[in-house]
Amino acid sequence: MSWLPTLLTETPEDGYELAIKLSRMAVKKTQPDDAAREKMRADYAFNADSLTNVSQVVATNFQTIAQANNYWRD
């Protein structure tokens, strides 16, 4: 089974959790080395700009998921 079988979710909150997962998977697929990701975490964990950028990526992914779910209007 695929790690991403669908963009459809029951609720907006579930959609937001999926947006976070999409964002995290993008990082993991881009940098598959666990040790390298762990080492870099210290560089961005206390950097306000990096954390803001993460929020922007999650927001973009959430927008995609919301559209796929017809903004949960059904």
Rank of each mutant, 00 (worst) to 15 (best):
M1A: 07
S2C: 13
W3F: 13
W3A: 11
L4C: 04
L4S: 05
L4K: 13
P5M: 12
T6P: 07
T6G: 06
T6L: 07
L7V: 02
T9S: 04
E10Y: 14
E10F: 10
T11H: 00
T11Y: 04
T11W: 04
T11E: 02
P12G: 05
P12F: 13
D14E: 10
G15P: 00
Y16E: 11
Y16T: 11
E17N: 11
L18P: 01
A19N: 09
A19D: 10
I20R: 07
I20W: 09
L22V: 00
L22A: 09
S23K: 03
R24G: 07
M25L: 10
M25E: 02
A26F: 07
V27N: 00
T30P: 02
T30Y: 05
T30F: 03
P32Y: 03
D33H: 03
D33T: 01
D33N: 09
D34M: 14
A35Q: 06
A35K: 11
A35H: 12
A36F: 14
A36Q: 15
A36K: 13
R37Y: 02
E38D: 14
K39S: 01
A42V: 10
D43I: 00
Y44D: 05
Y44W: 06
A45L: 04
F46L: 11
F46A: 15
F46S: 15
F46Y: 15
N47H: 07
N47I: 11
N47G: 11
A48I: 15
S50C: 02
L51V: 09
L51Q: 15
T52M: 11
T52Q: 11
T52L: 13
T52Y: 08
S55E: 01
V57W: 05
V58C: 01
A59D: 06
A59S: 10
A59Y: 02
T60H: 01
T60I: 02
Q63C: 06
Q63W: 08
Q63D: 07
T64Q: 07
I65M: 03
Q67S: 13
A68N: 07
A68F: 02
A68I: 11
N69E: 10
N70F: 13
Y71M: 09
W72A: 06
D74K: 00
D74M: 05
D74V: 13
